[in-house]
């Protein structure tokens, strides 16, 4: 941060200031233009959702006929839309109830490990999967879960199943498999932030509790958890905001024609209808629906956090 005394110029006319800060302007201007083109121009494309857009040469965006809410009505009347919403929300709720608390528990357990080298080893190995692509994770999971994969081998060995199961071909299991893959990939990585928060807790609190005769579990419950509540809330609010934008990579890569009914999420729906079938207006309408819902979710979660804790998160 630059201290006012030295760098802050006295009141000067804007042009003079701009000349003085020419290097700063040169550094940032290309990216301002970039943001306008690649981030703001697509927003202008939302107009398409209210038109019958069929790309033709020599037509400006406003030359296409306006059709009002036609595409939104079509969206809400499409039975497929409800399946897609069920899948999207189903998987994000699973993620929220299972994928969200696990890294917290993992971080607390990791914090209990006193042997530094063992701790480092666990951290290094559990951060690994975060760095590999979904393509690879999907490949690994389909190998593990295949008929002759290690999961079947293990279950057969333990006598839990009598015959190999093709897990990836059973529609009902798809949500669970996707959530497991997500947990497997991100457990270690997502725990970093909680571990950092735990490290920030004043160690004298633990010493005082020890003097008072608190057990380990009591220390965790009365010191560790309250100490990281703020971090937990921030992440929770952000996760709720992202609930509808769960992406499509894992669903696309792990899915196949047999589990289609449980694998299709919002972004895949946009991809199939909007891009593959060229129904651009319809696809844009779905995109707008998604954006609006996600902003409402973020805003709502933030409000809720404010009511609980008396402070906003974002």
């Amino acid at each position: 941060m630059i201290n006012g005394q030295v760098l802050k110029p006295e009141k000067k006319p804007l042009t003079k200031l701009m000349i003085k800060q020419r290097y700063l302007i040169l550094m940032v201007l290309p990216f301002v233009i970039w943001a306008v083109i690649f981030k703001y121009l697509p927003l202008w494309g939302w107009v398409m959702a209210f038109q019958d857009y069929k790309p033709r040469a020599g037509m400006g965006l406003l030359d296409y006929p306006f059709v009002g809410l036609k595409h939104f009505i079509a969206l809400f009347q499409d039975p497929m839309f409800y399946d897609v919403m069920r899948n999207t929300l189903g998987m994000s709720f699973l993620q929220l109830f299972i994928g969200f608390p696990l890294p917290i528990i993992f971080a607390i357990m990791l914090n209990e490990v006193k042997n530094i080298r063992y701790k480092k080893f666990i951290q290094t190995s559990t951060y690994l999967p975060h760095f590999v692509s979904w393509v690879i994770v999907a490949g690994i999971f389909s190998t593990l879960l295949s008929g002759d994969g290690v999961v079947n081998e293990l279950l057969l060995f333990l006598g839990i199943i009598k015959e190999p199961v093709s897990f990836l071909a059973i529609p009902k299991w798809f949500w669970g498999i996707c959530t497991s893959a997500e947990v497997w990939k991100e457990l270690g990585w997502n725990s970093i932030i909680f571990l950092a928060a735990i490290t920030g807790i004043d160690p004298t609190l633990y010493e005082a509790a020890k003097v008072d005769g608190a057990s380990r579990l009591q220390s965790i419950r009365h010191i560790t958890l309250p100490g990281i509540t703020n971090t937990i809330l921030v992440i929770l609010v952000l996760d709720i905001g992202w609930m509808i934008s769960i992406g499509f990579e894992k669903q696309y890569l792990l899915g196949n024609s047999l589990v289609q009914d449980y694998a299709k999420v919002l972004d895949l729906y946009i991809l199939d209808y909007g891009i593959k079938l060229g129904r651009y207006s319809f696809g844009t309408a779905i995109g707008i629906f998604k954006s609006v819902v996600s902003i409402i979710l973020l805003y709502g979660a933030n409000k809720l956090a404010k009511r609980w804790r008396g402070q906003t998160v974002i």
């Binding site: 630059i2 802050k8 800060q21 697509p42 494309g45 790309p55 651009y280 902003i295």
Partner: peptide, 30 residues
């Protein structure tokens, strides 16, 4: 740089893009 003349405006311009995006179709067409 606190003294940059367009700091607020540029910061807002970038911040907004984190919360709202045009979506897959407009970006594809662009």
């Amino acid at each position: 740089r606190r003294d940059f003349f367009a700091r607020k405006a540029v910061a807002t311009l970038f911040a907004i893009t984190m919360y709202i995006s045009g979506g897959m179709i407009p970006e594809f067409l662009l």
